[in-house]
């Protein structure tokens, strides 16, 4: 009897230790980047372009580039992902076709990000001739976040009680009317959550834009979807790996890392807060 109590205490302690170590590592990471990055950030850092051979100035073009790329990715993949989710939940029963689609979505989600980059390079940059551009990068990122958008939208759509649909259909509304007027409005918060999470994901991805959109330095700001762009995550990489003045550049890299980190953390915190609230409403907790 006593033995089993001791082993329970020991076991629980080990599990607590695992949890603690996990959070500790991540706490160290956050502390490191925040404490060192905060010195680099100023109003000028956020609003001016790099100067002095990437050793001075700010990172405004990289911030702008990241916003363009992320926005483009969402514009491309939201309609596609939403349509796919609507088809899977509203139009088809579980059958072979939906099974194949489900498996292909899961597997697309597991494709390494650098392989998306290869695909984007071969298809958008070379074959379709978009060149290294915001368009190529956005499309590549869009395909990368597509599985996430589909899964989040499906979760949102399936959480709508079946009785909502039945009530609407019983009143004589068609299937499309039911979807547009009843199902979509009710599932909107859930879908938005998925979109916000995807924004965070797209903003931080580096490998897919390495060969499709990003440049380390450009003059001025991108002025069309066919221009190249600077991007925050690529800028961090560039400053660390391609720099000629590591000392001065790593300071800027700290600043970039902090901006990117705050952007992504804020975005995903908002999304996860909404999702928790949403789940609580539907689970009645």
């Amino acid at each position: 009897m006593k033995n089993s109590n001791i082993s329970q205490k020991a076991g629980f302690f080990i599990l607590f230790l695992c949890m603690f170590i996990t959070l500790f590592f991540l706490g160290v990471l956050l502390y490191f980047i925040i404490s060192k990055g905060i010195n680099a950030i100023s109003w000028e850092f956020l609003t001016s372009a790099p100067s002095g051979g990437m050793t001075e100035g700010g990172v405004a073009p990289a911030i702008v580039g990241t916003i363009y790329l992320t926005f483009g990715a969402i514009v491309f993949s939201l309609p596609l992902g939403l349509a796919c989710a609507i088809y899977l939940t509203e139009y088809t029963p579980d059958n072979l076709v939906t099974n194949i689609l489900r498996i292909s979505i899961n597997n697309l989600a597991g494709v390494p990000s650098v392989v998306f980059g290869l695909f984007g390079l071969a298809v958008f940059v070379k074959y379709l001739g978009f060149g290294v551009s915001i368009l190529s990068g956005s499309l590549t990122l869009g395909i990368l976040i597509l599985p996430g958008i589909i899964s989040a939208s499906r979760e949102a759509l399936t959480s709508i009680p079946q009785s909502f649909r039945e009530a609407s259909l019983a009143l004589g509304a068609t299937r499309w009317q039911t979807i547009r007027k009843i199902v979509l409005p009710a599932s909107l918060p859930g879908i938005l959550t998925g979109v916000i999470l995807s924004i965070g994901r797209a903003a931080g991805e580096t490998a897919p834009i390495l060969f499709t959109a990003a440049v380390f330095y450009m003059k001025g700001y991108p002025n069309s979807v066919f221009s190249e762009a600077m991007a925050l995550p690529y800028h961090i990489y560039g400053l660390m790996m391609e720099g000629t003045f590591p000392e001065k550049q790593s300071q800027i890299a700290y600043g970039c890392a902090l901006i990117l980190l705050l952007m992504v953390l804020l975005i995903s915190a908002i999304a996860i807060y909404f999702r928790q609230r949403q789940r609580r409403i539907y689970n009645g907790k």
């Binding site: 931080g204 990489y237 995903s268």
Partner: peptide, 15 residues
């Protein structure tokens, strides 16, 4: 934990 899972890999690389 979910938020931490979303930290971009380039930041881990930098760290």
């Amino acid at each position: 934990v979910e938020i931490l899972a979303g930290i971009p890999s380039v930041i881990y690389g930098f760290f």
